[in-house]
Design a protein around this nucleic acid. Structure first.
Length: 217
DNA sequence: GTCCAGGGCCTAC
DNA sequence: GTAGGCCATGGA
């Protein structure tokens, strides 16, 4: 069923090639900034950083906290997010000599657990970093994925993150393998957000949804 | 004016 | 282990 949803969405919208960003570090910044925030607001904050020549590791490392807060203000929760970005860079410097290459060279599970220990990194942020910046095979579960799966009777509405993640990963692993897996997780997440934005707002929007024929009666 | 967005943390029970 | 409050801006 999950596989059917993936391929149906892929036919309707794909390929989306998601998370437009120029560097891995930019992906990571976006992952923090988008926490409970619309991507429009995140783009505004990223623009501010780029204009200030600050959308890179070295600049944010040396930047005053207050200045960082002001630049990312449009993305909301700006005090928390500024502190979280600083925390991430401290972790990177202390554990991996400030090198994303070294960080991503670790075994997946070990790295995931390290990220989850950081203040401000929960399941979704950790997995977004692993998948979109590290190209590692991890499916990112977000509010849209939960909503779509619950609507289709695949999960309960309050299903736990790692359970939903396992369902998707088990389903897609059966048909794909190797490095292609990460590409499929990437694409599926993007497709779920796309269909969620377009069709999960109101009941009326269900009628034109590409998944509508799959809905349980 | 109200509601919500590509979460996560902390505190109570 | 989980429900509820909190963090904050910008667009609908």
């Amino acid at each position: 069923m999950i596989s059917t949803i993936y391929h149906t969405l892929a036919r309707a919208y794909g390929p989306l090639h998601w998370w437009p960003a120029r560097t891995r570090f930019e992906v990571i910044v976006g992952a923090f900034l988008t926490q409970n925030t619309s991507w429009k607001n995140v783009e505004h904050a990223l623009r501010n950083l780029r204009r200030a020549g600050a959308l890179n590791l070295a600049s944010i490392r040396r930047m005053e906290l207050r200045e960082l807060e002001e630049l990312i203000r449009p993305s909301g929760y700006f005090r928390q997010k500024a502190a979280r970005l600083k925390t991430f860079i401290e972790y990177l410097d202390e554990r991996h000599e400030g090198s994303l290459n070294r960080m991503f060279a670790q075994p997946l599970e070990l790295l995931r657990n390290e990220l989850l220990e950081l203040n401000g990194v929960g399941h979704e942020t950790a997995d977004a970093i692993l998948l979109y910046a590290g190209k590692l095979p991890v499916f990112v579960v977000d509010a849209y994925a939960k909503r779509v799966f619950a609507r289709h009777g695949i999960t309960e509405s309050g299903e736990k993150y790692e359970r939903v993640q396992a369902l998707v990963e088990d389903a897609l692993r059966e048909e794909e393998s190797g490095s292609a897996l990460a590409d499929h997780y990437n694409e599926f997440h993007a497709l779920l957000v796309e269909v969620g934005k377009r069709h999960c707002g109101t009941i009326a929007k269900c009628a034109s949804c590409p998944l509508q024929p799959l809905l349980p009666v």
